[in-house]
């Protein structure tokens, strides 16, 4: 059996693997890194997204042997020194998760998105996350979270965001976007 050396969340592992072993099963079943879940078998859902040598990859569509010599970062490796990654914090603050199953992959995809576009528009976020499916949120709060996380990562204050607004003005109902007609100027997807 091939022997692979892979660094996962800062720890170097050397393991013998069957050639067909998927990276995600290597992480979950061999290393016990169960933070990265599997949601489909065609690379569509993105739940299993990790950073592979610094770029997002769907770990269900990579063989462990292909990752030999690589550096893998999973959602479990994002927080450091007890501090959440700003994107993790933003997902929490904007209520960008419900069941949470897509969340690890969504967070990794969001972090990757910001590498090229540190201040993405709503449309850029939606396009950038199209390979990560969520069935709970309808994506509105995920989009807000990614933009909030982007501001936090670039050192800006979080500013007015929907989650906070909803909280602070809860007495007037959660009408964060309420108040103005939206028939005008809302771009079609």
């Amino acid at each position: 059996m091939p022997r692979v050396t892979v660094t996962v969340d800062g720890v170097a592992y050397e393991e013998e693997v069957e050639p067909r072993l998927l990276l995600v099963h290597f992480l979950r079943d061999r290393l016990g890194r169960t933070g990265t879940p599997v949601g489909c078998d065609t690379g569509n859902c993105g739940s299993c997204t990790v950073m592979l040598d610094g770029r997002s990859a769907k770990s269900c569509s990579v063989l462990a042997v292909q990752a030999d010599g690589s550096d893998v970062v999973t959602v479990e490796g994002l927080a450091s020194g007890g501090e959440l990654h700003p994107m993790q914090r933003a997902f929490h603050e904007e209520h960008a998760l419900q069941c949470g199953y897509c969340t690890p992959g969504m967070i990794m995809a969001a972090i990757d998105l910001l590498r090229d576009d540190p201040d993405p528009s709503e449309e850029a976020v939606r396009q950038g996350l199209k390979g990560n499916l969520c069935r709970c949120t309808g994506y509105c709060t995920i989009v807000r979270a990614v933009r909030r996380g982007a501001r936090a990562m670039s050192g800006e204050p979080p500013g007015e965001t929907a989650g906070e607004t909803a909280g602070e003005t809860a007495g007037e109902t959660a009408g964060e976007t309420a108040g103005e007609p939206v028939g005008e100027g809302v771009a079609a997807p």
Partner: peptide, 23 residues
């Protein structure tokens, strides 16, 4: 049988939703 054939919407397939409440 797969997510390539049974299509659920992604973020790029949906708009932002405007929500409000009465009580």
């Amino acid at each position: 049988t797969t997510m390539a054939d049974y299509l659920i919407p992604s973020a790029a397939d949906l708009p932002d939703f405007v929500t409000d409440r009465t009580e």
